[in-house]
Design a binder for these strands. Structure first.
Lengths: 263, 263
DNA sequence: GCTTGACCTTGACGCTGGGTCAACCCTCCA
DNA sequence: TGGAGGGTTGACCCAGCGTCAAGGTCAAGC
């Protein structure tokens, strides 16, 4: 007959695990010898190996117990189901691997390839890395929040970049993170941006983007906090009848400065 | 700015999880408003999404922390290593799937292939399943106690089965589990066995098997308990100068019946 | 007969990644 | 003013064991 460590060694488990299975009733307590040691027979080996085979497949011990105590046909069904789950788990892990590879190579996070390409295009335009990281973070949030929209939005961004004025805008923005709030170049950005917006409105290119309003506010707030000049830029634009950054909208004249008494 | 539940919703986690990350220092505690509510900015969303991306890959949270706080080159190394672990896990699960398929019967998992083949050969000879199960349990014990010997012993058993008398012996033993102790066929078995032993001794095929003496006694005792006729069979053989079952030995004449006074 | 070292026993706490109360506070709306 | 529906901390709970702790047992060697 076998001692607990012989049993454990043969089934490839630890002594502690065997005792745990006794505790939860998964493996019946065997006879003891006169000194209280547990003594096992071959049936225990068989049962233990079955337990481990199922447990290694990720089956919770409670379900292992149900399966082993059920009839052979239920057992077969259960094993079939577990095998299906195993296949699904393997597929999941393979998907995780793919994401992980992109995480190492791409933008340090699982952004869709389209976004990575877009950020690379900005880099190619000479935009500084700090600004690109800000953009990237914004895209991370967009990817998390509205993954179904992201490819369409990216396509629109690519179109915009075909406009030389937009390229110029980015080259200005690139260095703007360190400007003081009263830097005159902030006005230059505002002028450029307004020209772009007017042109976009005339071309009928301003439509709904599909984003939630609050989400747009959140993205805007990160922009405002990124640089001292950002708030002033938005203020200038608002004076001229435009509001927002992530989504720039025309503000009707009668709704400008709503905090003033509209006597 | 965001409340905890808004943050959680953006990143697709539960509020409880966010608080857990604060507790373990994975996500820095943000500012509080005047009533003690946590208020988050977009950077927290980004960090939280990164945490989830790694955690979904199965990375333990402690390691997520190391990775996110490390430089980009260490981050790359860490991701490489995680990918290696993922590959290993996938292979392990595929192996588990193969074992799961064989789980229907006990012996394939508990025994080396050589023993399974041997038992199949016995089945092929028409030996009944009950006897085979007894044999199987004995082999499980042997495999547990002396795994290094098992292939050699099995090889010897295969050789023995090349002898037609041995085949005949098994066909007799197969049905013998239910015989009464005084069944005349027990004597037939004894005769057959003695012929086989004498031939083996003459051929010089009797050597040490490497088993522990106590272990041999144990295997014999299970044989004795398996059937009423078993004890009588051993007694007959002992009268004729043979002792044992698992390991049959010639007993010197002066050591026969040692319990009698050797005056 | 004594020591040593390997093994056995029970019992209890620790770990991960949170779920799920409880008990109370804050804000908003009718 | 009160009730819903947020938020807060604190505490216990789960699997599946690992890992002490504190002691009893067994076989071997002196």
């Amino acid at each position: 007959m076998l001692t607990i460590s012989q049993l454990a060694a043969y089934a490839g488990v630890t002594v502690r695990a065997v005792r745990h299975y006794h505790q939860i009733g998964l493996l019946p307590e065997p006879e003891r010898d006169q000194s209280g040691y547990r003594i096992y027979d071959a049936a225990a080996v068989v049962r233990l190996i079955r337990i481990r085979t199922l447990a290694d497949a990720g089956v919770p011990l409670a379900r292992v117990q149900e399966l082993l105590d059920a009839g052979p046909e239920k057992f077969g069904d259960g094993v079939q189901e577990i095998d299906k789950e195993l296949r699904a788990e393997i597929r999941r892990l393979q998907g995780t691997r793919r994401r992980l590879v992109r995480l190492a190579t791409g933008e340090h996070l699982a952004l869709p390839q389209s976004v990575v390409d877009y950020l690379d295009r900005l880099r190619g335009l000479g935009v500084e890395e700090r600004y690109i990281e800000m953009e990237r973070d914004a895209w991370i949030m967009i990817a998390a929040q509205a993954p179904h929209l992201i490819d369409a939005v990216i396509a629109k961004k690519h179109e915009e970049l075909d406009d030389p004025d937009m390229v110029k805008l980015y080259s200005l923005l690139s260095g703007a993170l360190d400007w003081p709030a009263d830097d005159p170049r902030v006005d230059e950005i505002a002028d450029l941006l307004e020209r772009l917006m007017i042109r976009a409105v005339q071309a009928g290119e301003v439509g709904t983007d599909g984003f939630d309003d609050q989400f747009v506010d959140l993205l805007d707030s990160t922009m405002v906090e990124s640089s001292p000049g950002a708030a002033r830029l938005l203020a200038i634009l608002e004076e001229r009848g435009w509001r927002g950054w992530t989504r720039i909208e025309r503000v009707p004249a009668d709704r400008l400065n709503p905090e003033l008494p509209s006597s």
